[in-house]
């Protein structure tokens, strides 16, 4: 089961503002603190952060809300943090913040149901991620076969994605992206 968390609501709860924009570091830090509180109450579930009703996201806020949340989420009882309803402008700011810190997150753009990776990750991981999202739960051999790679290369890419909490790795050596939301 997943938790969908509307960021516009978190924003209003965190700071008294009539606006929908995630701007300034102070705002970002307040939103992140609020999000961390909420996520601690949702153990065992992927956290789906919904940006669809958010106006602007600036670089500083992308760093405070997304990049620092990704770092902090390692200590949370949440398997993954995924972004939804991400506008093209949001994606640019988030990508910029994550690239700088060598982080990556799964995002689904507004009006799309195709997940993609934002941030810093190898081309092999990106390619394997694209292939895995077309399947359900599969072993590395299936991805290797589809991409014309060696099994070791596919496994390495999928392990990399699992380590960075972009896909789920199962004990039977299979991988899956899981539900979008």
């Amino acid at each position: 089961m997943n938790s969908v968390i509307r960021l516009d609501i978190i924003l209003r709860e965190a700071v008294a503002t009539p606006y929908r924009d995630l701007v300034t570091r102070q705002t970002g830090a307040a939103v992140r603190d609020r999000l961390l509180m909420v996520l601690r109450d949702h153990p065992g579930r992927d956290a789906h952060l919904d940006f669809s009703e958010v106006g602007l996201v600036d670089f500083s806020c992308a760093d405070e809300v997304v990049a620092k949340l990704i770092v902090a989420s390692a200590d949370l009882p949440v398997p993954r943090v995924l972004l939804h309803g991400v506008g093209v402008d949001h994606a640019e700011a988030i990508e910029h913040a994550l690239q700088r810190l060598g982080l990556v997150v799964v995002a689904v753009l507004l009006d799309s149901d195709q997940p993609l990776l934002l941030g810093a990750i190898s081309e092999d991981c990106r390619t394997a991620f694209g292939a895995l999202t077309e399947h359900g739960r599969v072993a590395a051999t299936a991805i290797a076969h589809e991409l014309g790679w060696s099994e070791a290369r596919a496994r390495e890419a999928l392990d990399g994605l699992a380590t960075r909490r972009c896909v789920l790795a199962h004990p039977d050596a299979t991988f899956e992206f899981g539900a979008v939301a």
Binding site: L56, D58, D89
Partner: peptide, 12 residues
Amino acid sequence: GGFGQSLSEACQ
């Protein structure tokens, strides 16, 4: 969007 981001960062 970029305009808003630029305005925000310049003010910050």
